[in-house]
Structure formats: C-alpha cells, structure tokens
Amino acid sequence: MDHVKILVVDDETDVQPLFEQRFRREIRKGELSFSFAFSGEEALKYMEEHASEVVLILSDINMPGMSGIDLLKHIRRTHASPNPRVMIITAYNDNDYYNQAISGGADDFLTKPLDFTLLKEKLSQL
C-alpha cells in the first residue's frame, strides 16, 4: 500500500490520541499518516496549504461553526478531481444526514461509535 495521508476533522480533541493509537502499527510502518483539524474552518485552512498531499478526509458533521456537510460542499467546489476522498462520520444515523452527505459528494458515510475494524477494511481498499 502506498503512503496515504488522512485529515481527520472533529471538534472532539480526543480523536487525535484515539486515531494515533488505533493506527499506531500502520503509522509506524509508514502506510498511513494523520493530520487533525478541530473545526471546518481549520480543515479548509489546512487544505489550502497541503492540498496535493491529502488523499482522504474523515469529517464529523456536528461541529460549532462550519458543519461537516458545509466543509464537504466547500471542498467539492474547490477540488473537482476525485481526490481527496471524503468520508462523513456522524452520531446521527438517519437517512436525512446520509442523503445530505451523499448528495454533497461524500464517498462514504460512517456512524459513531466508530468501528475501526470496518474503517481499516475501507482504507485497505483505497
């Protein structure tokens, strides 16, 4: 597997240690690398600086300020190419959010609590 750079967007700061530990082996082997943004705005700023590097964005929906859906739409406007891929994560497992995410151009839709085994499977298919 090539090196994959992933941007995780969530207002819960504890996602950073969680992702870093759950993917510690993959990170150590150099297969994956993670960056974190704790708001939609921060994520956009990061994307401006590292646009070509980021392959995948994992974003929460409910965040203060810019929501995950807004971020998704923004990214799809400025990045017409298939990359980066965007996976939307939410604790609201309902059709409304799912439809919003998919019509907004999301590649996948995941629910909290996050199933890392499932996430790893999806990442290996990239």
Partner: peptide, 21 residues
Amino acid sequence: AHEIQNPLNFVNNFAEVNTEL
C-alpha cells in the same frame, strides 16, 4: 442520545486500543 454517542465512541475505542496495547 446523540451526545452520548460521542463519549461512548471514546470509551469503546480506547478500551479496544488498551487491549491491543
């Protein structure tokens, strides 16, 4: 209920991480 999913996400996943650790 939504708000509970967030802490639960951490409790479950950190517990699994700890098992791995």
